[in-house]
């Protein structure tokens, strides 16, 4: 139960959404873009989030796209995780997001919502980072398409009033061998203590991780270690773990020591899965 009241808008077009935002912003209202809304509800009900108004992007046709357009896969921000998995357009993405929350929730959680999540995991970004996806944004400055990694630094940073419309994945990445693992404290349904999405491209591993540090990341240094043919698999992993971008998390899901142990195991599994595909 959300204790506070807010205005709800579901615009039918990008321009309408932009207009509503501008009008509300002028009134100094706190406005949130909304697509699945699961996090908006769960945080608002425990007073950890507040908004004067929400703009629901589900009514915008572009935000509901899910198709192959030429050499690209285009995914609207308001498409549910289950629809993406079922479409099988990008199997690594489908498999990775299939591990988020539970099946029923994934009918409501959207990829846009997950990329913008206030939680530290945002696992849907992992396959997109390794596949060098682009994102299409809209805002008062107009629309722009940029490389995801340009605006994804720990989290998706958009300017005020700007919202995610679509994600564009080059088709060439979708048939690379891939691996996706999620490790939890205990139950399959739960936050990851390690989550990895990896592909093999031109015989090189590309990998992105979540759950290990305070934010999801793809690290070229770690990839270089994993691809260093002069090292044994154990040495690769040992080296990779020294190259993490920040400290390993220590929280109620797992201690940092245990996370490191699980991370090493998971890297091993990933290498094996991709190695088999490679060989």
């Amino acid at each position: 139960m959300i204790p506070f009241d807010f205005d709800y808008y579901r615009p039918d077009s990008i321009s309408e959404a932009v207009q509503i935002y501008e009008t509300l912003a002028k009134q100094s209202k706190k406005v949130l873009f909304y697509s699945g809304g699961t996090e908006f509800i769960t945080f608002s009900r425990i007073n950890q989030l507040y908004a004067d108004a929400v703009i629901d992007l589900k009514g915008i046709p572009e935000c509901n796209t899910l198709e192959m357009q030429g050499e690209q896969i285009v995914i609207g921000a308001a498409v549910s995780l289950n629809k993406i998995t079922e479409s099988n357009l990008f199997p690594l993405l489908g498999q990775t997001i299939k591990k988020i929350a539970d099946h029923t929730s994934r009918n409501k959680i959207t990829i846009g919502g997950n990329l913008h999540s206030r939680l530290i995991y945002r696992e849907s970004v992992l396959p997109l980072l390794v596949a060098e996806a682009e994102v299409r944004l809209a805002g008062s400055e107009g629309e722009t398409t940029v490389q995801l990694e340009e605006i994804f630094n720990q989290q998706l940073s958009t300017s005020p009033g700007q919202f995610l419309v679509q994600i564009i994945v080059p088709k060439t990445y979708t048939d690379s061998p891939f691996a996706s693992f999620k490790k939890t404290k205990m139950s399959k349904v739960g936050y990851p203590i390690v989550s990895i999405a990896a592909i093999l491209k031109n015989k090189q591993i590309r990998a992105a991780l979540s759950g290990v540090c305070e934010y999801p990341f793809r690290s070229v240094e770690i990839e270089a270690a994993l691809n260093d043919s002069s090292l044994s698999i154990e040495e690769k992993i040992e080296k990779a773990v020294t190259l993490l971008p920040s400290q390993i998390i220590d929280d109620i899901q797992a201690s940092s020591d245990y996370r490191e142990f699980v991370l090493k195991n998971t890297l091993h599994e990933t290498m094996e899965a991709l190695g088999a595909a490679h060989g």
Binding site: R10, T38, T42, D56, N82, T104, N107, K108
Partner: peptide, 27 residues
């Protein structure tokens, strides 16, 4: 739970199972 964790509020929206606690009525 009102938090999408337990499934006791499940209803079908256009045939898909949905946590009714995680949907706004207006949606």
């Amino acid at each position: 739970c009102q938090n999408g964790d337990c499934g006791a509020c499940t209803v079908l929206v256009n045939g898909e199972p949905t946590h009714s606690c995680l949907s706004l009525s207006i949606e």
